[in-house]
């Protein structure tokens, strides 16, 4: 049984359609990574999965009893809101102290329970968000560009932590990432998104797919190509439709 199944999902904000006809599924224990240029609908896809946006078409099916842990992009904590890490982990419902220290340990920050949230470094904050997602003992972790704002060392060690968590808990992971070298080495499956699913498969398959190369280029320059991707790349298979206004109808 799949943990989640996204079927023919279309998401629109007003008149603009950001996702059309997206289908995907995540199986227990696997790491699936979503890559795609800015504005390709990656975040909208995750927001649809957690129920923050209503799909214009299609649906998201959660497996019965499947628990999801969500790690948002680095969120801004207003300086005027005093809150300790352990209080934050007790939102929205009560959590026993032992569970809090266990989750913090799993996330690699065992000593932060009494720290103020607004005074954490970027890397510490990201791990606290990870700890919060782990508290419910999730079957599936959703990570939305969790390493944004971290330096290379920080993000490498964050991904290492994620890998450790997966080994310990066996949970599946669905993540958005900009860091192609990490994606290509750590994922079981990669989904290349650009308003629709361009291509998907194992990292090796995706890396050699013409759609992926059109988006990210070849070789190590790929990461830079993220920001220079052109919309009129051609697909030599299937009937993908790049005309977003038409797809919205």
């Amino acid at each position: 049984m799949s943990l989640i199944q996204v079927q023919d999902l279309t998401v629109s904000y007003g008149a603009s359609t950001v996702l059309s006809g997206v289908s995907l599924h995540v199986e227990p224990g696997e790491i699936v990574t979503i890559v795609g240029p800015n504005g390709s609908g990656k975040t909208s896809l995750l927001r649809a999965i957690i129920g923050a946006v209503k799909p214009a078409k299609g649906r998201v099916i959660h497996g019965s009893g499947v628990k999801i842990g969500y790690v948002p992009q680095n969120l801004h904590i207003d300086e005027t809101l005093p809150i300790t890490v352990s209080r934050f982990l007790k939102l929205p419902s009560y959590v026993a102290v032992v569970d809090i220290s266990y989750a913090l340990m799993q996330a690699g920050v065992p000593d932060l329970a009494k720290a103020q949230l607004s005074q954490l470094s970027g890397g510490q904050f990201q791990r606290v968000l990870l700890a919060r997602a782990l508290i419910g003992k999730p079957d599936l972790l959703l990570l939305d560009e969790a390493t944004q704002g971290l330096d290379q060392r920080g993000s490498a060690s964050f991904y290492q932590q994620i890998e450790t968590v997966r080994q310990d808990t066996g949970c599946a992971i669905l993540m958005i990432s900009h860091e192609l070298h990490v994606v290509m080495s750590a994922s079981d499956r990669v989904i290349c998104l650009n308003g629709h699913v361009c291509c998907e498969g194992t990292p090796a398959v995706v890396a050699s797919a013409p759609e992926y190369r059109a988006l990210f280029g070849t070789g190590t320059g790929g990461a830079l190509a993220l920001y220079r991707h052109e919309h009129d790349h051609s697909h030599d298979h299937g009937d993908h439709n790049h005309d977003h206004t038409e797809a919205a109808e």
Binding site: R47, I50, Y70, L75, I77, L81, P92
Partner: peptide, 19 residues
């Protein structure tokens, strides 16, 4: 209280918790 506080911290975090 808890739901309000969660929503104040982050809207998506709230949605993910069913709020």
């Amino acid at each position: 209280w808890s739901a309000l506080l969660t929503s104040t911290l982050d809207e998506d975090l709230a949605y993910a918790s069913g709020i």
